[in-house]
Design a protein around this nucleic acid. Structure first.
Lengths: 164, 164
DNA sequence: CTGATTGCAAATGCTTTGCACGCCA
DNA sequence: TGGCGTGCAAAGCATTTGCAATCAG
């Protein structure tokens, strides 16, 4: 968890008259141990390793809070569960390429694309705030060799094998 | 319901060894009376006007089917309900601008943007299939005049005032 | 102190499913 | 006739919420 993020959270908590609780701190820490996307359930499991008494409800409530604080972004990777992305702070305006075969997710940023989006939005009489770009695709690995390292794992999971 | 779509459905049904039922036909007809986005529930209500005995389950099952047949696309307009878009056939690769204030949805197509997306995907070693672009924005109407015709309606609906 | 926060369990709300009956091919 | 399709009601599931207890400031 970087200094900057800690400050961002502290400032948000103060500004809104909220409280610093050990639960929130542990959840934040669990989120930023990596820069990977995650679901609420995945985070819940991660958090429980540092404190097995934290409830699912608190994790959900914290996620809502951190999104409002700008620390996280909800992203749509397809499927029913909401995914959270901790990288928008460093890389605003990035999109996701999702392999329809194995569910692998690639994150990309493209400044030129973002600018073009903004231009389109302005042209339509809107002020752009944020965008979500999800591209479904097929990875070369599978097409070329007929094999994809992630595919096997994906097939083992019953539902929505989307990971990052 | 256009000839082309009817053929597309018929071909799909034949190819998969499925059956032509009055329910499916009524649902398809209800979908293409307009080119607006809709939710399963909205469609269900529309369908019930032509046949009040069609069940919700059949509507859901048909939606899944039509998406597979390529007649519809699921789109993410934010919120919990899945929205369906009947326009991708005519306008592939279009995106949506959603006003965060009133929930109004604008559909747009931009060939240049689509091509740039494809280029990025290829650069990352993927073969592009389809993309979903959702841009949250604020409409000029509200910013300039402090009023937005859709805002009032939006506030009247409790949850997810997103319409197209 | 006092209101914010948490844990638990119950409740939501959309969507899916099991099952028995009905109907298309 | 053989299944596919349908309706109904009962799950499923991720997420939210009511409530009483607890805790931060």
């Amino acid at each position: 968890m970087s200094e900057k993020r800690q400050q961002q959270l502290d400032e948000f908590i103060t500004r809104r008259g909220l409280r610093r609780t050990p639960q929130r701190q542990k959840i934040i820490d669990a989120i930023f141990v990596s820069d990977e996307h995650f679901t609420a359930e995945e985070l819940y499991e991660r958090v429980r390793k540092s404190d097995s008494k934290i409830s699912r409800a608190t994790v959900y409530r914290s996620l809502t809070l951190f999104v409002e604080a700008g620390l996280l972004r909800e992203i749509d990777l397809g499927g029913d569960r909401t995914h959270y992305d901790p990288n928008f702070d460093d890389k605003p305006g990035h999109g996701h390429i999702i392999c329809v075969d194995c569910g692998k997710v690639i994150e990309f940023s493209d400044e030129e694309l973002s600018q073009m989006e903004d231009g389109i939005v302005l042209k339509h009489g809107f002020k752009p705030l944020r965008s979500t770009l999800r591209i479904e695709a097929k990875c070369d690995a599978l097409r070329k060799s007929g094999m994809c390292p992630d595919l096997i794992k994906a097939r083992m999971a019953k539902k929505l094998p989307i990971r990052s």
